[in-house]
Structures are given as structure tokens and as C-alpha cells.
Design a binder for these strands. Structure first.
Lengths: 336, 336
DNA sequence: TTGTATGCGTTATCAT
DNA sequence: ATGATAACGCATACAA
């Protein structure tokens, strides 16, 4: 590896001078800077991140926390899209990414300790059990953090517009003429609660009665439970004309069940998903759904985190809501 | 941050003694070791990775290269499964993961330079353009590397059993009675070539004639091009009775096209995918496909890489083929 | 069995 | 405008 010492020798200056020249210190002659820079380039010099981290207490390394109790993890397109955009934005700003976990090899450490171990300058908490003490500890530490879809007090949070998204979907199907709308939702997380509340509120605002048996709990990303709840809805004496699913992927279960019962989508049953994953737009008919702004959420998370890291003095915690986009699709028709 | 110096003070010994005790050196009294370890635990000590990397030239950090010309990246379930398993195995063995890229911030560096910058002990090249000079340079460097689904000379490679997988699929549909089998394949990568060769060879071995118009090129992960090729196949005077798709996801395009033309799967057309992604098993009928052993591939890659890093003397490059599993599904019936 | 001294590559302070 | 020096936290060769 070529170090500043090598360059110092090659240029006949001291290591200090090299360091200064490379970092744009104001007290080196422009000519010298030029010479050293050129030499460094020629010799293929690149700084050593470890040495720099040790000396400066700054690693230019961001921790990312994706701890998924369910185990879907990055297999879920929503999260992989978020991750990809965190990564892209971080790289654009000169930061690498390290995954934060617990129990590295024989060492047992919690998330905060792992973060310290790798000298991460900050952590994006992208998906986690926010009641896990280890997660709370990280969120309450002095390490800059940004959370996604959850708010820690005095921390920046990036939020998907679940309330508005659901409202738009409900209003869309309302305008198509639907009055009997059912909602199969996922496990009761804080995100689910927002969507559920927005669903109910919007229905109320529109003067729609939602019988309690129209609200059913399934699970995210699990077509089987959605199929089951679809069947239950179809057995009701007063069937809905439109069914909302927890997300696009679990909609597949509903879709299969409807087909199995010989019901055409959307002629005999309208359907709505959530997420706007790639799959939803290659199905026929395309699924009517709400595409969350995952790319912007990830990019914003990285950007805000780095902002806090680099300008802690002028920084203020923010809650940034990222809008999504209603994808009209073709699974909602006027009820027969 | 609590350092060995803090512990040394607290225990009334020197920093060297603390270091030795913590690392299990044989020349410290058991009793002292015990005392120091306890103290370290109490004080919440964890080593500083940067300092350790600087001193030892070992970072316990693995680079991972996912450079996707297509841009699907981790959005593709095959790759996200591979990544998750690399990560899990690496963590189990005490290593963190860093994504290797080019152009970090204002610095321009190639993959090798990025690897050196972060002092990665080795790199898993999981998905890349293996003809990219930057990738070749990394593969030919002195940094330990393991490739997936591609072989670099004198390097360890983890390979999905594309040849056997395709053979099993062909034999399966053959036994179901199919003799007119078409193959819509993806872009001509080395993986595609293996599958294609195995398809042709197995057909030949079974005495099946494959007319050239049955072999069609579409693109991976792209339902639209598969839909197009499906249509082309259906327009042939002598239609196939079974269609192989590039992968499970692009099958969606074929599925839609078949439905659009009023053809029932599998009664009027049998279909076969590749990958065994989650989606394929929630469709109805379930897709007949070949599930690649992504989890074992990722785990094996991490394991082999770490083996090479930790025991370079006894290490030898290997080519490890990971078997997959034929998922029978319900999209292949006896041809009418 | 323990301690002293040194250096990994870098940046920062203070002389010169 | 440049250089000498110290320090970041750790591991290790060598001295005691």
C-alpha cells in the first residue's frame, strides 16, 4: 500500500506537508500542492480509512440497521429499494455502509456497541423492533441516528405518507362508486395503525359505513393469510365490492382465492394493494396500489444523517414525510 | 469510549497485560486474566476496529461486490437471498460487511482501491460484469476473493448447478409426456449459456428435436419481453406444449399473455420457470421451477473466503457447485 | 508473569 | 510556507 510517507519521500517533503496538501490546507504553496497531488495520483495513493478513523474519530462509515423479526429483510422489495437508495446517496457523499447487528462472531454486543466498534459516524435505523431495548439504547445514545417510519423523540425521522396514501386510495375507489369497502390489514404496527385510522377516517368523511366484519387482520407479505381473509369476506351475507390488501405481495393470495371462486377482477370484485412493487405492475390487470417513495426515503435518510454528522451545530431534528404515488392500475372498476 | 488504557488503570496493570489477557495470550496468570476480563465487561469495553485494523493489517471486514449493470441489484430475490446469507455467515464468523463500489464521494477509485481503502480482508464478488477491467483487476489482485456463478483462474468460485438444474427440469417435463418444448432464455451470459447448453444436450439425449424457432431470447427479470416471445411461440404453426422461461419473475409476462389468449395453464400450455423465488410458490397453480440454493451459496462463499483469509497456507482454490431443488408446482401437465 | 517500547497511517499543534 | 512531533487504540517483540 502506498502511504503518505512514500509520497513524502518521492516529493522530498515531510509527511505533514503531504497531508496538508492532500487535504487542501491553506498554508501550503499552490505549486507544492500541485506537485504533491500529481505525485499522489501517479503513485496510486489512497488514504487508509482505518488510520484516518483512528486519528480523526470520524470513519466516513454509516451504520444501517435492518433487523427484521419476520425475517423477510431485504427480500422485501420495499426494504431493498430503501437500502439501495441509502447506499447510493451515502456513496455519493463519500460514505460507506456497514450493517449493524448483534453478536459478531464470539463477541456479544448490542447495536450501540457494534456501532462504536466500527466507529460509525451515524446509523440509519431502517427497519427494527423499536421497542427492543437495544434499539432504544441506540436511539437514545449520542450517535446520530435517523429512523424510518418511526419517530424517536429529538431525532430525525423519515416517514412514508401512510395517512395520505390510504386516504387517496379510499377516495379513488369511492369515486369509482364503491361504498362497501373492506380492508384486510397487516399486523398492528404503528404503520398499520396509521393506515387503518386513515382508512376509517376517510370513509367516515365520505359518509361510508364500514361494518366491523369488513376490517380484518392478516399479515404483511403473507398471501396465505390474505387468501383466508378474502374467503371470509366472500362468505359474508353482505359482501364488499372492493377489498384493500395489506400490501401488493399478499394481494397474490387474494387474487388466487378470487380466481378460484370464479370471480373476475375487477368486474366482480375490485382490489387494492399497497407498496407499488414491481410485481404489482406486471400482473394483469395491473394492481391499483400506492407506490411508497422508497427511493426518496432512503436518499433523504442518508442525506439528513450526513447533514447531522457534518454540521451538528446547525442541525435540528426533523420529521420528513415522503409522498408516494397512486398507481391507478386496473383492478378497480365501478361496482356491478 | 472505554479503551484498554482505562482498563489498565482500573486494574492496576499495564496496557500490554490487558491486551494479552483479552486476547488469550498464554503468558498471563489465569487469575489476572479473569480479573481483567471481568473488569472489561463491567466497564463495557469493546475493541476499536480501526485501531486493530491499523495495527494488525486485518480489519475483520469483508467487501461485497454487487454491481448490477441492469440495476435490479438486491431487488432481485436471488441476489437478496445470497446477500442475506453472506451477511449471516460472515457475522457468525466475526466479520462485518462493506459494500464495494467505485467513486466514493469525490474520490474516484476502482474496486480494488476501495477494498484497500477499507482494508477489507477479502471480497465476495457476488454479481458483476466479469469483463469489466476493474473487476478483473480485483480478481487478479492479492486480495482474497470468491466469485459467484463465474470462475476466475486460481480463485474459489461458488456455482449454482445450472447444468444439472436445467437437466432435471427437462427430464421432468419429458416424463410428463412433453416432446415439443420451447425455451425462452435470458441475455447470453455465461449462466445462460450453461442453461441453454444443458437444455439442448438433455433434449438431444432424450431424442427430442428442438426446432430453432423454439429457442428464443428475452431478458431476465423482464416480463414484457417474455410476453412478447410467448406470443411469437403461440403464432408458430407447430406450437410447443411447454414453455421454459428465463426466470420465475419474467414468467409473469408469459402467464399474462397465455391468459389473455384464453389458454389455461397447465391444461393447454405447460410452463416452467427458474429460481424458485417466493412469488413462484404463491401463484396458482404454483410454478414448476428450480430453486437455486442461494442461501447455501452465500454462506459457502463467506465461509470459503474467511477460510482463505485465516488459513492462507493450507488454502486451495475450489469450485463448489451448490445443488438446487426442483419444485414440482402445478404448471406442467400431460400435453393434451 | 508482567511491563516497556514501538509502530501501524494519519492529522493536528506548534515550532521554525 | 514547511517541518518536527505527538497522539489516536491496539498488539507485539523484547526486556525485566
Amino acid at each position: 500500500m502506498v502511504t503518505i510517507t512514500d509520497i513524502a519521500k518521492a516529493c522530498g517533503v515531510s509527511r505533514a506537508t503531504v497531508s496538508k496538501a492532500l487535504n487542501g490546507a491553506p498554508d501550503i504553496k499552490a505549486e507544492t500542492v500541485e506537485r504533491i497531488r500529481e505525485c499522489a495520483k501517479e503513485m496510486g495513493y489512497h488514504p487508509n480509512a482505518a488510520a484516518r478513523a483512528l486519528k480523526m474519530g470520524r470513519s466516513y462509515n454509516l451504520g444501517v440497521l435492518f433487523s427484521e423479526p419476520t425475517g423477510v429483510g431485504l427480500t422485501h422489495e420495499y426494504f431493498s429499494r430503501i437500502f439501495e437508495s441509502i447506499k447510493a446517496e451515502a456513496e455519493r457523499l463519500g460514505y460507506d455502509i456497514t450493517f449493524i447487528s448483534q453478536n459478531l462472531g464470539t463477541m456479544t454486543m448490542d447495536y450501540l456497541e457494534h456501532t462504536r466498534y466500527r466507529s460509525c459516524d451515524g446509523v440509519v435505523i431502517a427497519s427494527a423492533d423499536f421497542h427492543d431495548p437495544a434499539v432504544v439504547r441506540l436511539g437514545e445514545s449520542d450517535i446520530p441516528t435517523v429512523t424510518l417510519d418511526y419517530i424517536f423523540d429529538s431525532r430525525t425521522a423519515i416517514l412514508s405518507d401512510n395517512i395520505q396514501g390510504m386516504e387517496k386510495l379510499v377516495r379513488y375507489v369511492y369515486e369509482k362508486g364503491h361504498r362497501r369497502i373492506a380492508f384486510i390489514h397487516g399486523e398492528l404496527t404503528s404503520v398499520t395503525q396509521k393506515r387503518l385510522a386513515s382508512f376509517k377516517k376517510t370513509c367516515a368523511a365520505l359518509g361510508i359505513q364500514v361494518p366491523p366484519e369488513y376490517i380484518r387482520e392478516a399479515a404483511y407479505h403473507d398471501p396465505r393469510s390474505s387468501a383466508l381473509q378474502t374467503r371470509a369476506l366472500l362468505e359474508l351475507p353482505n359482501r364488499p365490492t372492493c377489498i384493500f390488501y395489506p400490501d401488493d405481495f399478499s394481494y397474490i393470495g387474494g387474487m388466487n382465492e378470487l380466481e378460484r371462486q370464479g370471480l373476475q377482477i375487477p368486474r366482480q370484485m375490485s382490489t387494492v394493494g399497497y407498496d407499488g412493487i414491481h410485481l404489482s405492475q406486471v400482473l394483469r390487470p395491473k394492481l391499483t396500489t400506492y407506490k411508497q417513495g422508497a427511493e426518496r426515503m432512503g436518499a433523504e435518510a442518508a442525506k439528513q444523517l450526513i447533514e447531522e454528522i457534518e454540521h451538528p451545530d446547525t442541525w435540528l431534528p426533523q420529521q420528513i414525510t415522503v409522498e408516494g404515488l397512486l398507481l391507478e392500475g386496473g383492478t378497480v372498476a365501478e361496482p356491478g
